[in-house]
Amino acid sequence: MLKLTQNLGQQGLMAVARLGRRFMFLLSTLAGCAGLIRRFHLLIKQLYSVGVLTLVIIVVAGLFVGMVLGLQGYNTLVDFGAEESLGVVVALTLVRELGPVVTALLFAGRAGSALTAEIGLMKATEQLSGLEMMAVDPFRFIFAPRLMAGFIAVPILAAIFNAVGVFGGYLVGVEWVGVDAGSFWSQMQAGVDLQEDILNGVIKSIVFGFIVTWIALFEGYDAVPTSEGVGRATTRTVVQASLAVLGVDFLLTALMFG
């Protein structure tokens, strides 16, 4: 019994310490972001590996999600004779929810895991300590550009996902099952609001980009510096980032549309 209580206390203390390290890490990284404009080439490089390399999966996923939405939406709406509303259904689903969330999930799987593995391996091979020995601040040169790149890349990726998804919905809805093109677009334009829907979607994806990159970088930084530890940290990144995105999405949705 005593042992059980001790175990519980130990777990609790570890969790709190982890939370503290998480925030200390974030603060140091944010402090490292100052003057990032002078290390612009680092940011460009990270934007390439985090953003450009994720583009293909985002475009393909967006196209198929949009097409599925078009088909499913049509099959449901046609029962009510409301297939003209297909445009607004596809656009609102994508812009409000699926765009930011699916982008963030894919980003966590594609770029987040890569970030964790990279940082974890840097730690395991003592490159981070090496940098510190040379009086190079890893927060300013390693973490800050990566956090910033995730912060910038995810909203852009989400916007591309949305645009491609709407196009996919158009392909299936108008070109294939034959909804009238005019009512598809006009209902969409009447139903989607720039501020209410699109801007809120962008805000969501900014928050998600920040959360996913933060978790990915921290897990790498906090990984046990062995090959097994890096592997586990990578798994934790994907699981935790996905759960965090879904949880925060509910909160944001309740705040924005509730």
Binding site: V95, A153, N162, Q189, A190, I198
Partner: peptide
């Protein structure tokens, strides 16, 4: 990549929400 992002946002603003 940045241009594509801006283009996508412009499409969303003009074409989707008018």
């Amino acid at each position: 990549f940045m241009l594509l992002g801006m283009l996508a946002l412009a499409v969303l603003a003009l074409r989707v929400s008018s």
